[in-house]
């Protein structure tokens, strides 16, 4: 038998998937992931997945804000000071629009590329695509739960998943 990435169960309804996650987690399984065609808050909560995205984007925003203002201050006061009709060199109200835009820009770049990086993308190969039903339905109407081989109780994973309302249980070859 080929080496396994995990055991994958398929559900027809999102509600069944949520119930199954609760059941196998109560049974002591921990290393698992669910696959759904659209985001389902209950599934993410049941799996206890937390995201660090807000903190990351907040930090990016602060850096963008300070960097944007810093750039303008450095150029206008230190590197290239020019006296325009006696106006102060650090005419900060005029620097607000660009400071704001730099804040937004860094937040947007961080949210996008942070999401891609934290998800481990781009990923040209992943074992779950070895399951035919997954390829066919994961983007349409299939709700999948996969207990991974790294789980300490993996030996009894097939049994546990068969005990849920799964329509199909498959091996996932690594």
């Amino acid at each position: 038998m080929a080496e396994l990435h995990g055991i994958m169960a398929e559900y027809e309804k999102p509600g069944d998937l949520v119930a199954a996650i609760h059941k196998v987690r109560e049974a002591g399984f921990r290393n698992m992931d669910a696959y759904t065609p659209y985001p389902i808050e209950e599934v993410i909560e049941a799996l206890d997945f937390k995201t660090k995205m807000p903190l990351l984007v907040l930090c990016a925003g602060i850096i963008g804000c300070l960097g944007g203002f810093g750039l303008q201050y450095w150029v206008s006061v230190i590197e290239y000071p020019m006296n325009y009709g006696g106006r102060p060199l650090n005419s900060w109200p005029a620097f607000i629009p660009i400071t704001f835009e730099c804040t937004i820009l860094l937040c947007a770049l961080t949210a996008t590329f942070g999401m891609i990086a934290m998800n481990g993308l781009p990923m040209p190969y992943h074992p779950v695509f070895n399951v035919a039903a997954f390829r066919e339905k994961a983007g349409t109407n299939g709700y999948f739960l996969c207990i991974e081989a790294s789980d300490p109780k993996f030996a009894s994973a097939r049994e546990a998943l068969s005990g849920t309302n799964a329509s199909e249980v498959n091996d996932v070859e690594a």
Partner: peptide
């Protein structure tokens, strides 16, 4: 990019999407 609809993905994705909307 190898998107597979994993809930781990969706957790980050939903948050990033909301934040993008927010900014």
């Amino acid at each position: 990019l190898g998107w597979r609809g994993s809930s781990r993905h969706w957790a980050n994705y939903e948050s990033a999407y909301l934040l993008l909307a927010g900014i």
